[in-house]
Amino acid sequence: MPLDDINKDTYTGASFSVRNRLARMLWGIIYIILFKYSPRPFHEWRSFLLRLFGAKVGKGVHVYPGVKIWAPWNIEFGDECGVGGGAILYSQGKIVLGKRSIISQGAYLCTGSHDYTKIGHPLITSPIVVESFAWVAAEAFVHPGVTIGEGCVIGARSVVIKSMPEWTVCAGNPCKVLKARVITDN
């Protein structure tokens, strides 16, 4: 998003342009009427609606009803990724979900914050990337600017404030690496 599209003083006005706010209002109407209460198996229908609003959606994506999405045009869904009901994709900035990544129920991916060092508390955004085969478990919180490495597992209710390495199991507040993730044959 161009910097001139963001208000520098959140006390005197909105952080986003009128165009952005109108697009989000229209999305909100479509979300409530056609997305939020659509039947659980209607993944293609929800993918269609997300594409209609500018999201990049791969093949076989499963976004469940009740997932809260702030701005679909700021999200890329990789092939066969899944987002569980009640997850929040607060996409003021870009969110990229890799192939077969999983965002579990109630997880919160937040790309925006405010610069508390400036008197006007201007909005700042930073992208979140969840790489392929990674899993963000239930009710975890992911801060702006974080990359979850390929194959990484983030434990339930973790608070991820920095990027996590690939093929590891991580958890806690703040989230930290616990061990290597090893895939076994069954």
Rank of each mutant, 00 (worst) to 15 (best):
M1I: 11
D4G: 00
N7K: 02
Y11Q: 10
G13N: 01
V18K: 14
N20L: 05
L22P: 00
R24T: 11
F42H: 09
E44N: 13
S47T: 01
L52R: 10
F53H: 08
F53P: 08
F53I: 09
G58D: 10
H62I: 00
G66M: 07
K68T: 13
W73V: 02
I75D: 03
I75S: 11
E76Y: 07
D79M: 11
G82W: 10
G82S: 15
Y90Q: 13
K94F: 04
L97M: 06
G98Q: 03
G98K: 07
S101D: 02
I102K: 11
S104W: 06
S113W: 11
Y116H: 12
G120Y: 05
G120D: 09
P122K: 03
T125E: 10
P127E: 09
P127A: 08
I128K: 06
V129L: 00
S132R: 14
A137G: 02
A138F: 02
A138N: 09
E139T: 10
V142D: 06
V146C: 06
G149E: 05
E150W: 00
G151M: 04
S158R: 06
S158A: 15
V160Q: 10
K162Y: 09
K162T: 10
E166I: 09
E166M: 13
V169F: 00
C170E: 09
G172Y: 00
K176W: 02
N186H: 11
N186Y: 08
